[in-house]
Design a binder for these strands. Structure first.
Lengths: 223, 223
DNA sequence: GGAATATGAATGAAAG
DNA sequence: CTTTCATTCATATTCC
C-alpha cells in the first residue's frame, strides 16, 4: 500500500522531494534484498521450474539424505566424469585429430566410449570444446616470468577494482602457469604401460632368438 | 531467519518433502513478486536517478545479477546476461511465437525488455538464434542403446570413486542416442590387437627359450 | 575441512 | 541457419 500511496502522491506532486528520496532509498534497499532473494531461489532451484516438478536427474537442492526414503536412490552426481579408459580414447582422438571436433563423428566417438561407461554425445561434445579451449589458453605459458610481470603490470587498477575476488579468468593462465605435462602423463600412463609391455615382449623375443642361434652355434661348435 | 530454520531442518533431515515443496513454492512466489518490485524500481530510478546511494558503474539503477552476494565483478560484463525478468519475457515470446525471430519485431521486444535492464537488439537476435538452434538439437530423441543399459546394470550402489562415472541417474542420455555398433567392434579390435600382440610376443619368447633348450639338448645329445 | 584447482556444462556472440 | 569460439558458472577433486 505504500507503493500505492507513493504513486498517488507522486502523480499529484504532493510528496516532497525529500520524502520521495527517502522512499526511493527504502525501495532501493528492498530491491537489493529481494534481488538477493531471487538469486538465492534461482540458484537453489537451479533452473528447474516448479511447474515441471523435480528434474529427473535428481538433486535440485534436495540432498539424497532427504530423498533416501524413496524407492531407488538417485545418485547425486550431476556431472559426467569420463572413465580412465574413456579419457584415453578421447585424448588419443584429440591428438590424432586435425584439432577439429568432428561434426558427426561425435556420434561414433560416443558409441565407442559407451563401451566403457555411460556417456552422452553432449558429454563428448563438451569435452572436445573444453579440451581445445583450455589447451589453447595454456599455450602462452611459455612466456617468461618477466613477460608475465610485464603483462600483469599492464593490468591497471581499473581492472583490479572489480577483480578483488581473484582477478579475471583471462589472466589466470598468466598468473598460474599450468602443469599440463603432469596431466598428460597421468592420462597416458596406462597407455604407455601397454607400449612398454609390447616393447619388453619384443626385447625378450629377440633375446630368445639370440639364445636360439647361440644354441645352434654351440651345437655346431661342439660338433 | 526463515532460511536459517530451513537449513537446520534440512540438515537434520527433519523437514518432509511436502514441507520442502511448500516452502519452495512460497519462495518462488516471493521471488516473482520481488522481481517485479525490482523491475518497478529500476524503471522508476532510470527516470529519476537517486542523488546518492546509487551504484557508480550501473548503467540503469542496478542489476540484480550484479547485486548477488557472490563477490562478483560489478559491471564491465563483457557479455550480456538477461535478467530473470527479461528471460521470462523472452521465454514466453519464444513459446507463443511462431518460432521465427521476427525481423522488425525484434525492435519491439528489445524495447519491451529494456524496461527491465540494458539490452540491445543484437542480444535479442542472438538469444532467439541460440534458443532455437539448441532446442532443435534435442528433437532427435528416440531409441536407447543397449550398451548403456548393460553398463548401467553393472554398477553397484557402492560409492563411486574417480573415473567410475557409469550409472548416474540421467535421462538426458536418451536425447543423444547412438546406434552404430560397428565402431564398438572396431575399437575392441584394436584393443584386442594389442593384447594379441603381447601374447604373440610372449609365445615367441617361450618358443625361443624352448629352442634354446633344444639347442643345448642337441649339444648334449651330439656329445 | 577449507582454499585452490580441475573440469563438465551452459550460454552469449560471432563466424561461415 | 549452423557451427564454433569464448566466457562464465557449478561442482568434483586435491592439497595443505
Amino acid at each position: 500500500m505504500e507503493r500505492g500511496s507513493q504513486n498517488d502522491e507522486y502523480d499529484d506532486g504532493v510528496m516532497t522531494v525529500e520524502q520521495m528520496e527517502i522512499l526511493r532509498k527504502q525501495i532501493a534497499i528492498y530491491a537489493v534484498i529481494c534481488g538477493q532473494l531471487v538469486s538465492l531461489h534461482e540458484s537453489l532451484s537451479s533452473k528447474f521450474p516448479l511447474s515441471s516438478g523435480m528434474h529427473p536427474t535428481g538433486g535440485g537442492y534436495f540432498d539424497p539424505m532427504v530423498a533416501s526414503p524413496s524407492t531407488y536412490k538417485i545418485s547425486h552426481r550431476h556431472r559426467w566424469t569420463p572413465t580412465s579408459m574413456q579419457l584415453q580414447i578421447l585424448e588419443s582422438i584429440y591428438e590424432e585429430g586435425s584439432g577439429t571436433p568432428k561434426p558427426q563423428r561425435i556420434e561414433e566417438i560416443t558409441l565407442e566410449l559407451s563401451q566403457h561407461g555411460q556417456v552422452m554425445e553432449k558429454n563428448v561434445y563438451n569435452w572436445f570444446q573444453n579440451r581445445r579451449a583450455r589447451s589453447k589458453r595454456k599455450q602462452p605459458q611459455a612466456m617468461t616470468t618477466m613477460t608475465v610481470q610485464t603483462v600483469d603490470a599492464t593490468v591497471t587498477t581499473e581492472e583490479r577494482s572489480y577483480g578483488d575476488s581473484g582477478g579475471f579468468e583471462s589472466y589466470d593462465h598468466l598468473l598460474f602457469p599450468s602443469n599440463d605435462f603432469s596431466n598428460i602423463l597421468k592420462y597416458n600412463l596406462s597407455f604407455s604401460h601397454m607400449i612398454l609391455l609390447c616393447a619388453f615382449g619384443y626385447c625378450i623375443v629377440f633375446f630368445g632368438i639370440w639364445k636360439f642361434y647361440l644354441g645352434w652355434f654351440m651345437v655346431i661348435l661342439f660338433n
